[in-house]
Write a protein that binds this DNA or RNA. Structure first.
Lengths: 178, 178
DNA sequence: CAAAGCATGTAAGCAGTTACATGATTGT
DNA sequence: ACAATCATGTAACTGCTTACATGCTTTG
């Protein structure tokens, strides 16, 4: 579970509950995880069992108690080791590409419509990202380096989408030109 | 199993054995699957059970018999439905980004070294892709449309890598400039 | 003589997803 | 009145991965 390490990173920034973590993973630029409950709550249990995080239970009335997790020294050591791991190449899973590969036999107008629809979804997603970025959001900024990194990560994601969009448009134009 | 549909796409191009399919998935641009045995052979069994592919066993001496799979009409129908499915957005899983997000506290030279190493791996992978593309390889080209699509897909993958590389370089320069 | 390629398959497991389950509070 | 937010968790499942198992042939 590699979300495990990312959780440690967050907790090194500040203590948090499972709920907060899952929002981070679902929303923040650099994380590809959906932030589903099973993974986050499961990983926290495991981290706690392993002594990588501490736990304070804060009772609330009319709501489940908040379980606030904090990183421990062993947790920091694990995080530090993870940060230095060799980086793998980015993996891009674009279902649409797999489909395109076998789509040449579709009627031309239909293929064009499929690509157009893809462009629209990309444009929509880019808009949402840009808006989210504009509003800033709650992200770590403990130093100018950290600010720079998070800004770069957000830009990266947006640029990737825009490149994909431009590519799809060129492809559609190219197909029409045949 | 969505590799299932991609297999149908290949078989609609030409009959093939599991071994050939697994090579395609491991090597060809538009497919993100590793082409591991379990998935390919498993999917073929399933497709055969479902009547989406036919099977001809060609005995060989001194080697296991080749099991040559062919697409059937129900298989073609399934493929056609898949091609028209709504395209999801590309998912990018870049472990390195997740690590970067929490790396601001690393000693600057170490962070720089990590980014450099990432750049080198990207450059290496791009070189391999470019070389593979130059040599052409065995890909479908039943029409100018199909040729165009496969070329575009290969370009897309290469461009994505080069954008990532350029981004990493800019980031490293930016960090140094602080 | 070793490595890569051809050719099939199985076993075990990890990571991640959606959906289920509960229930009060706040905002539209 | 309905949806979203806060807050915990569980169940069932899919997709994908590495490693194991076998064994001959071709290439370097």
């Amino acid at each position: 579970m590699s979300i495990r390490s990312a959780i440690l990173g967050y907790l090194e920034w500040r203590p948090a509950t499972g709920y907060e973590l899952k929002k981070l993973f679902a929303e923040a630029a650099p994380f590809h995880w959906s932030g589903n409950n099973n993974q986050v709550y499961g990983a926290l249990l495991e981290l706690h069992r392993d002594g990588a995080v501490g736990l304070e239970v804060v009772p609330q009335d009319k709501r489940p108690a908040r379980k606030v997790y904090t990183i421990t020294d062993p947790g920091r050591a694990e995080l530090s080791a993870w940060l230095r791991e060799e980086a793998g190449l980015p993996e891009i899973r674009a279902d649409f590409h797999a489909r395109l590969a076998w789509s040449a036999a579709l009627p031309p107008p239909e293929l064009e419509a499929l690509i157009s629809a893809y462009e629209e979804r990309l444009a929509g997603a880019a808009l949402i990202l840009r808006e989210r970025e504009r509003r800033g959001g709650d992200r770590p900024a403990r130093s100018s380096r950290e600010r720079l990194i998070w800004t770069a990560l957000a830009e990266n994601r947006l640029a990737a989408m825009e490149h994909e969009l431009a590519w799809a448009r060129r492809l559609r134009a190219g197909l029409r030109g045949l």
